[in-house]
Amino acid sequence: MTATDSATGTAPAPAPERPDRSLGQAAYAWLRRTDTGSSTFSVLVTALLLVVLFGAGTLRYENFGYPQVALNLLVDNAHLIVLAVGMTFVILTGGIDLSSGAVVALSTVIAASLLQKGWAAPLVIVLVLATGTLLGWAMGAAVHHLQLQPFIVTLAGMFLARGLCFVISEPSIPIRDDLFTGLAQNVIELPGNTYLTYGVLIALVVVAIAVYVLHRTRFGRTVYAIGGNEQSAGLMGLAVGRTKVAVYAISGFCSALGGLLFSLYILSGWSLHAIGMELDAIAAVVIGGTLLTGGSGLVVGSLLGVLVLGTIQSLISFDGGLSSWWTKITIGVLLLVFVVVQRLSTRSSR
């Protein structure tokens, strides 16, 4: 056990009042808690991995160090960040959402086909987001009320979403709506001749909101409590059922929003978009240090996880000699390392 054991002395004095800790003390307390099993430590490892990967790229390829390369990690992966945020909510409760890739495709198809028919862009956006949320809510209800396994429920959701895609439109539909193209093509100029897209801004706002919700609201803490011990959470009087349904609705919303960002990114709607994107999201969440058994992990970790995946992709595209499939292999190996380490660390702490 840890140093806290010493606190169980037989003759404990009343705990000293420490109303205001100095910054140094707080930092020390934080560091002391950040041991190898904590989620902050996992995030630090992921951050370190990101720095090392990026550093290696900078040393190896001469153009890799340009600031815009780093920013492009965000630009190219804005949709995946949003997806990973939704996935984090679900995985924190110990569930999984296999439908998110299909919901992305569905969102692009709905958006593209409605815009083609001349619907107003804001209305289309609302409709897409509502569809995703509704689908997620239905899956959450099935998981909670029918006690079906999340894996099976979201698998069925994936089939349904893809099926709907094909019904709406099989061929790819280009998006020519002014609002969409405007959002896609206009960039936010940053100093140093660099830029970000509006999609990145949206993704970062989503991350910020998720951090706030998970850490500063009762709902968020209930999400963690369910992942820690669902039965206990129930006995502690928390709203387990409502929260479980809600995380799938959130994941559905995030998938739909991710779909909109993805349609901005490639300006088309197609039923075969985003095949396997749910796996990328899951991989990012795991690499970001979230335990697949639930209860431990940070949204910031998932953000870093997406950036790690993005960096691997850029490294491989910068190196003309390495072929694209190395991306998949590397991601698989990283996944393996993180999963095995997680397994070993949870085994030893029990």
Partner: peptide, 8 residues
């Protein structure tokens, strides 16, 4: 995840 990469 890694398998398709290996196949390629």
């Amino acid at each position: 995840t890694a398998g398709r990469g290996l196949a390629m």
